[in-house]
């Protein structure tokens, strides 16, 4: 495989990763804007998350008396694993060397690694809220991760590959065909994505009540650049799930070669898809209320069952031919 390594491809892959990282706050800002419109509020400008990050990066870091070295390194590890995950997901171009580093299962593993350190950081200072957040996050994660893997299995069995590029390739090759396994997997991935990225109704990123927090409770003790990295990693994770939903199920338009024209088209189309997805997400968040924490397992069980049904329907109905 070494002979396939092309310097240009690697450079482009890194550029795409950078684009991913840089564009992530914009997606969050867009969702917030649509939500504000729906609630008849004036929305902050789309550049607001960037300004927040800049402000946080320039602020002084404060540490709790009880914080250990793990607390200080965790933001870098969480951000780092999320960036590696972003490098693996095809954004606007399909054939990238980075996609070979890790397949979809490794992608889930990388999210798991980030979550592991996030939860440990929550437990590190030794406050009630940190532990509460960590415990809840691990519960949600433990139930969402198998569901996510089932979605991947349903897709991977269809494409006979777990490599994200190959999966998208086979989706493109099939053309527009409504298969039951894809429909179930799509719904399951939406639910998993909502749970994993801490959106309403599982978690509320805008909450100010410590008792109801999940993600925010774990990063309650962070300040300055450490907080900025944690926030940015969360935004990046949301973006990755958004891109996964768009590119796995509606891949049309993604650039299969590296010429500028097709890249431009791919970028434009992906933006449109993400804008629509973000609007749908915002509308959905406006329609439902945050659920009690102990209802979340039911929510995730639905996701898991949907994904399982998707996979079984592939195995039973579609693979026999």
């Amino acid at each position: 495989m070494v002979d396939l390594v092309n310097v240009l491809e690697w450079v482009f892959a890194l550029l795409q990763m950078a684009l991913f990282v840089v564009a992530a706050p914009l997606f969050t800002a867009w969702i917030k804007r649509v939500k504000c419109w729906l609630q008849n509020r004036r929305s902050p400008p789309l550049s607001q998350p960037y300004r927040d990050l800049r402000r946080l990066f320039s602020k002084q870091v404060l540490l709790a008396h009880t914080a250990s070295p793990l607390f200080r390194t965790a933001p870098y590890l969480v951000f780092g694993t999320t960036v590696i995950a972003a490098a693996v997901v095809p954004l606007i171009a399909l054939e990238l060397p980075t996609a070979r580093i890790a397949d979809a299962i490794v992608l889930v593993g990388l999210f798991g690694l980030g979550r592991f350190f996030l939860a440990l950081a929550g437990l590190d200072v030794g406050t009630t809220f940190g532990g509460m957040g960590a415990s809840r996050e691990m519960t949600v994660g433990a139930l969402a991760e198998p569901a996510m893997l089932m979605v991947i299995f349903a897709l991977a069995m269809g494409a006979a590959s777990t490599n994200l590029s190959t999966v998208i390739h086979s989706m493109l090759a099939q053309g527009l065909a409504l298969r039951p396994s894809l429909l179930f997997a799509f719904l399951a991935l939406l639910l998993v994505g909502i749970a994993e990225t801490g959106r309403v109704p599982v978690d509320n990123p805008a909450t100010h009540l410590e008792l109801t927090m999940i993600h925010e409770a774990m990063i309650l003790e962070y300040t300055g650049r450490q907080l900025a990295l944690m926030e940015w990693a969360a935004q990046l994770k949301l973006m990755i799930y958004g891109v996964l939903v768009c590119n796995l199920f509606f891949p049309w338009g993604i650039a299969q070669t590296l010429d500028p024209a097709s890249l431009l088209i791919a970028g434009g189309l992906l933006s449109v898809k993400l804008i629509i997805l973000g609007a749908v997400l915002a509308v959905a968040e406006g329609l439902v209320a945050k659920m009690r924490f102990f209802k979340v397992p039911v929510f995730l069980a639905v996701a898991f069952t949907l994904a399982l049904v998707g996979m079984l329907s592939f195995v039973m109905l579609e693979s026999a031919s």
Binding site: T66, L70, R115, G126, M138, F153, M157, L308
Partner: peptide, 29 residues
């Protein structure tokens, strides 16, 4: 595939279990 799903659940629960072990014994006060 169903067994694979069970394996996935096991892995995720193991992660939760060891976050608990490490977080409670080594971290905090």
């Amino acid at each position: 595939p169903i067994v694979a799903a069970i394996l996935a659940l096991t892995g995720a629960l193991a992660a939760a279990c060891f976050v608990r072990v490490y977080g409670i014994s080594f971290l905090g006060q």
